[in-house]
Computed example of a mutant assay.
Amino acid sequence: MHMSPHAAEQGYQGPLIITKGGTYSGNWESKDSDVPAIDIRTKEPVIIEYSNIRGAGHLIRSIGYSANITVRHSSGYGITPTPYSNYEKPRRFLNVDVFKNIVVENCYMENTAGIYLAQRYVGDGTPQNTIRIRYNRARNIDGRIYNGLAKVQFVQFNYRGEAPHIEIAWNEVINEPNNSAVEDNINIYNSRGTVASPIRIHNNYIQGAFPFPANAEKYTGGGIITDSPETDSTMATAYLKVYDNQLVGLGNYCLGIAGGNNIEMYRNRAIVAARFEDNTLYSCWTGGIWAKDYYKLNSTFKNKMHHNTLGIVGQTGTWRNEIMDSTFVAAETFDNTILPEEITPTLEKQEYELWLNKLAHNNIRLGPQPSKATANKVIDYK
């Protein structure tokens, strides 16, 4: 399996177990899928910075400790998976169940299984107790495990409890066909923001979402989705704003509402030429945006999808996306723009140039920076 030569240049120590709060810097690895490279066993605040981490399983893990974790200016690499016991252990960059505060900023991820936040938010609702995933670069989100494939994402929320001040912003995620194995790039599953402070997913660049192998016909992944098989609407996915993202070259879908309420998706750009570099068409379905009460549990309502720009090549040309299952008012507002011109790989490449110009205009630097003096300042984008 491909591994960046930059990962091999570092001198690595064996797995690290953290039992006390503090700031940690170094290079750690685990060649055993059952053993995380860094295992955090404390509820005290832990900062991991200016570090390199690589693993055959979870890179950074915290299970059952009401975690307060900041990871910044660090790089994580997935290495060859090994046999595992009891349950799948994909190479998550960060895997946490119960948490108070999670910050992942200015990091680089390669061949990892992204960030997974599960079970429960137990913070106090202040800006110091939230989730911030910003200014990161990810290459090839990869769910391959020993003799198999797990469903993984760049970001997966699966926590219970409302949490304010959440932001997933200014991340660059690029997945290559046959070098990646990603399901949804961002999936919000039964997780909630608040009325006054919705989850904000904005100004991300997401390129590539493919089955493995890439020429397979069946694929259920894609771009950014909300999902919620929850009968109680007060527990379902809710209070999200998804805006100003660029979604390029994705299989299956770009933006989707499969469940949840009070969700607004707007000013996003979705450009899909649906061709590989050798000019062959994707074998899987390709689509732009959709809203559907997939589970028909009456917890999906008061959603809006508007002012998005779409250029999607499907099996029969550009597919003009429509609301699915409007009986359940999956999207009360659905008003978007279909690009009239032919959608080509050249247009996809132009989207990346737009992204680079956006970063430069906003003075955003992605990935690890060489010193604290050059680290990103916090900017509150509306």
Rank of each mutant, 00 (worst) to 15 (best):
N245Q: 03
I225Q: 14
T226P: 13
D244N: 15
Y219P: 07
G223C: 05
V242M: 13
E230L: 00
T226M: 06
T226N: 07
I224N: 06
Y219S: 04
T237L: 08
G251S: 03
Q246I: 05
D232V: 05
Y253H: 09
M235Q: 15
I225Y: 00
G249Q: 10
N245A: 04
P229N: 13
Q246H: 07
T220H: 12
P229E: 13
G251Y: 03
S233N: 05
L240C: 02
Y219R: 03
L250A: 05
Y219F: 15
V242F: 06
T220W: 14
Q246T: 09
L255N: 15
C254P: 00
K218W: 06
A238I: 00
V242P: 10
Y239G: 12
S233C: 00
S233V: 09
G256K: 11
Q246G: 09
E230P: 01
A236W: 00
D244T: 06
G249N: 06
G256H: 14
V242T: 14
G223H: 04
L240A: 02
N252R: 05
T237E: 03
E217P: 11
S228Y: 00
E217H: 11
G221V: 07
G249H: 02
E217S: 15
Y219W: 13
G256P: 09
V248C: 11
S233D: 06
G249Y: 05
G221K: 08
G223A: 09
S233W: 04
I257K: 10
Y219K: 01
T237F: 00
L247M: 09
T226H: 02
I257T: 14
K241M: 11
G222I: 06
S233H: 05
Y219N: 03
V248L: 12
N252K: 09
C254G: 13
E217D: 12
P229L: 09
S228P: 14
M235N: 11
C254N: 11
V248W: 03
K241W: 00
I224S: 05
S228E: 12
D244F: 07
G223E: 02
C254Q: 12
D244V: 01
G222Q: 12
A236L: 03
L255Y: 13
K241E: 08
L255M: 15
L250T: 04
Y219E: 01
G223S: 02
L250S: 02
P229Y: 06
T234Y: 02
L250F: 01
G223L: 14
D227V: 07
G249R: 01
V242I: 15
K218Q: 14
Y243P: 01
T226V: 05
T226G: 03
G251I: 06
G251R: 09
N252C: 08
L240F: 10
L247W: 09
C254D: 13
P229I: 08
L240Q: 08
M235E: 08
S228M: 02
P229S: 11
L255C: 03
G221Q: 10
T231H: 10
G221I: 04
Q246V: 00
I225P: 10
K218C: 02
G221M: 12
T220K: 08
T234C: 00
T234D: 03
T237Q: 03
L240N: 11
E217Q: 14
I225N: 00
T220I: 08
T234N: 11
N245E: 08
S228C: 01
K241Y: 04
L240I: 07
S233F: 07
P229D: 14
Y239R: 10
